[in-house]
Amino acid sequence: MYGIAGYGAYVPRYRIQVETIAEQWGADAAAYRTGLLLSEKTVPGPDEDTITISVAAGRDAIARAGIDPREIGACYIGSESHPYAVKPSGTVVIDALGIGPDCHVADFEFACKAGTEAMYVAYSHVKAGEMKYALGVGADTSQGAPGDALEYTASAGGAAYVMGGDNVVAEILHTYSYTSDTPDFWRREGEHYPRHAGRFTGDPAYFHHVLSSAQGILERSGLKPADFRHAVFHMPNGKFPLRAGKLCGFKPEQLEQGWVVNLMGNTYSGSSPTGLASCLDVAVPGDLILVTSFGSGAGSDSFVLRATDRLPTVQKLAPSVRDQLVDRRINLTYGKYVAYRGKIRMNES
């Protein structure tokens, strides 16, 4: 049996409300709330980035796995906001978590699906018998251009997964990926904010890849939507994953637990991994879970997982995603938000 041995998620404490951003740009807050189906998003503190989020989530994943971090043979960090242009995030993460130096490390980037890529490669290694455990992380501190629709959703957070053949809490039964060259969203080297192709990001990009991937894994596994307790679809906003789930044949109650976007925003590479973590927080042994990510450019990774008897014994070893979403939030003004996000031109010291 191969799959997830431990998981952890991290949600920053800072938030900005849709109203706060809308007021700044003279936009209609109510329209954004209903159009995006979200009320606030997470904001990383001035001392947080993809690396610190990965370490926080990774620490909880290792605790839930109940293993010595030196047993981890690979560490992959999926993000579109690695703090360095040149220099790996993963090296900091392994040294902070006490992994290695006997390990393989790589940073992945594929817009919003780099996290599930990291999980997929980590899982493949342990399943191939190359190593006992491998860590896959999806984390981001994403930026939308000021005033752009993305600014209301681009947020921060992530989840980490220790994959292994022992101590499994959720067995991975099937994987499937669907990929094509679809330029819906991009950022060129040296550009500060990403560009997107408006409504082209919808049907030809998000929905085509997500539905193809989800329906593909259902066909290959011989499973039907009704077999699943939870289903998670990448959450660029509140509406897309609910519509994708409905089009696949899932009911709202199957989508509810993994749908964290209304309070969190779009954590990009951390989005569907965080949704999965939220499902694992409550799943009971035998529950089937479907996860389908989406990364612009474009592609989707799908996983079918089944909770094991060990899962309930580790759920309380770290804070749940839902608790982190509601506990001890700190609301920011727009001014503080742009300062923390480095959007104010300061003198270099």
Binding site: G45, P46, D47, E48, D49, I51, T52, V55, A56, R59, P83, A96, E348, S349
Partner: peptide
Amino acid sequence: FRRLQAQP
């Protein structure tokens, strides 16, 4: 674990 300094 946090980022302590990012300057310069």
